[in-house]
Design a protein around this nucleic acid. Sequence first.
DNA 1: CCAGACGTTGTT
DNA 2: GTCTGG
DNA 3: CCAGACGTTGTT
DNA 4: GTCTGG
Length: 195
Amino acid sequence: MVLARWGLVPFFAKSLADFKGFSTFNARAEGITTAATWRGPVKSRRCLVPVDGFYEWKALDDSRKPKKQPFAISLKTDEPMAFAGLWDAWKEPKLKGESLHTADTWLQSFSIITTEANEIMANIHTRMPVILRQRDWAEWLDRDLEKSPPIHLLRPYDSDEMQLAPCNPMVGNVKNNGAEMLECPAPDTPPLNSA
DNA sequence: CCAGACGTTGTT
DNA sequence: GTCTGG
DNA sequence: CCAGACGTTGTT
DNA sequence: GTCTGG
């Protein structure tokens, strides 16, 4: 198990600056074998991403202004789960004349794969991460290049085994972290200054 | 041929 | 690195 | 994705 | 409204 940067940087990127603003947090399962950024990784650099759960926002369109309610999503068993992921390795291209003996530092990065929402997720969103069952982990990680990638595993998880709970809107700000993100404040509490 | 892209989600 | 668009 | 910025001159 | 940063 390794730590890696979320947001896959393809091996062919010329510089990290060029890649700034490019969204590779998610890889759509549809077309994943042909997309330039994903086809190499899906062939030979598949990984699992362990998580306790994840958040997704539901757009509430019952008011003029679009508002969002975040939900925390997990397995009913509260066990951790494994997202299907892809990884790559990138290093700054060597300039001409640059010593071949300078230390290479490789950036390890990954993306998670998304698929269409299952029934329970469709209540709040159109997409969801691909979650793999333990019995499928070995097949997903198999590095035998003679075999074609097991893309049949890239489908929505069983709704009956998942649970959603409204959670703390503070989670919408990336600076906020911690268990209290899972706690939903009393619903429909008007803002104190709304009088 | 060379230059430029190479990706996703959501929202209207 | 490899494909697409001009 | 959501939150937060969105600007200039001059000074250190 | 739209872009940037986290």
